[in-house]
């Protein structure tokens, strides 16, 4: 009942009280991000504490769905958005995000540890990873999409129409195979147990033993190694190279805290933030922290080739690849 009363109180205050003067004195920085970032075990709580130590401000994370949901929300709110910073878009969404005209450029200087050179001046990367199929170590994984299609291994993937990893896989196959992509998907059709709405459902099905492999990241096994002391999961390295997901943050032109927002973007590539991310967001840091990667990351496989479609080209390629995907898997 205590929480019930607490809930009632919060609700009543939110309904009646105007923002009091005391609150107004501390500047508030509102950061929109995806749900898992703000979760108990996500990076949110630690990042918030670390930034508030120095900023003299109140950092407020607002979590909503995934990267695509973030962008949809921003489009709904338009210039009236309360967000100062949006954190959690990826390279597939950058073109659409820039199209809104809501973002502004930010000076972020960092010595990025990305496999590619970062030139975008609107969005600053804070972490990244390679998409990969994760499997149990008692299985000898295939080394190409073609070998996977020829095998009778069962995989779970995410729907590119509702999930960013699903979209990543779509771009991966399209980038690696071009016009051949549709036939690759046709070959994979009998390997795909099912397609899920999002990453959580797919990973849950894999852990339940519904499939031999699941589309996730090369860094996923690090979670099992470090947090669960379980080294039974590994990621398969594909000869085609691996498509990357680079997660970025940007600040809004309509922000009422432009300097604080710029500070926050710079903070996200600082040592303090970068050392938090690997073991909370389970991705590679965008800038190598001074202490290096946490123990356990050295066990992860390292793809030899990184793939990424230029963010400006993503929308057109996505539409074509999605048509092929639908055609191949709906037969």
């Amino acid at each position: 009942m205590k929480y019930l009363a607490l809930g009632a109180a919060t609700f009543l205050i939110a309904q009646t009280a105007p923002p009091s003067a005391a609150y107004a004195e501390t500047p508030e920085l509102t950061v929109y991000t995806y749900d898992s970032f703000v979760a108990e075990w996500g990076p949110g709580p630690q990042i918030e504490a670390a930034f508030e130590e120095t900023c003299g401000c109140d950092l407020k994370f607002v979590g909503m769905g995934d990267g695509a949901a973030l962008l949809a929300r921003l489009k709904l709110e338009g210039a009236r958005s309360e967000a100062d910073v949006v954190l959690g878009l990826d390279t597939s969404l950058i073109a659409a995000a820039k199209d809104t005209g809501l973002f502004t450029e930010t000076q972020v200087s960092a010595d990025y540890a990305l496999p590619i050179e970062w030139t975008d001046s609107t969005f600053a990367p804070y972490d990244w990873g390679y998409f990969a199929f994760v499997h149990n170590t008692d299985l000898t994984p295939p080394a190409t999409f073609k070998a996977l299609a020829a095998s009778d291994l069962k995989i779970v993937i995410q729907d590119p129409r509702s999930s960013t990893p699903g979209l990543g896989l779509l771009m991966w196959v399209k980038d690696a195979y071009g016009d051949e992509a549709e036939s690759i998907w046709a070959g994979l059709a009998d390997n795909i147990v099912t397609v899920t709405k999002g990453w959580s459902e797919a990973y849950g099905l894999f852990l339940e033993g519904e499939a031999d492999m699941v589309l996730s990241y090369t860094t996923s096994p690090a979670y099992h190694i470090i947090a669960e002391e379980d080294d039974s999961k590994a990621a398969a390295v594909f000869d085609e190279g691996h498509y990357m997901q680079i997660e970025v943050a940007g600040r809004l032109a309509g922000s009422d805290q432009p300097e604080l927002a710029a500070d926050f973007l710079n903070f996200m590539v600082s040592d303090a933030a970068q050392s938090i991310l690997p073991t909370t967001n389970w991705m590679y840091p965008a800038v190598m922290p001074s202490g290096g990667l946490p123990e356990g990351f050295e066990a992860l496989v390292k793809p030899e080739k990184a793939r990424l479609v230029d963010s400006a080209l993503v929308p057109a390629i996505r539409d074509e690849a999605l048509e092929e995907w639908l055609a191949a898997l709906s037969r």
């Binding site: 703000v38 979760a39 996500g42 979590g63 909370t280």
Partner: peptide, 16 residues
């Protein structure tokens, strides 16, 4: 339910 999904999204399948 939202909190449960957030747990799943952070690999916390057991807690979820």
């Amino acid at each position: 339910p939202l909190q449960m999904y957030r747990l799943m999204g952070s690999y916390q399948m057991d807690a979820a």
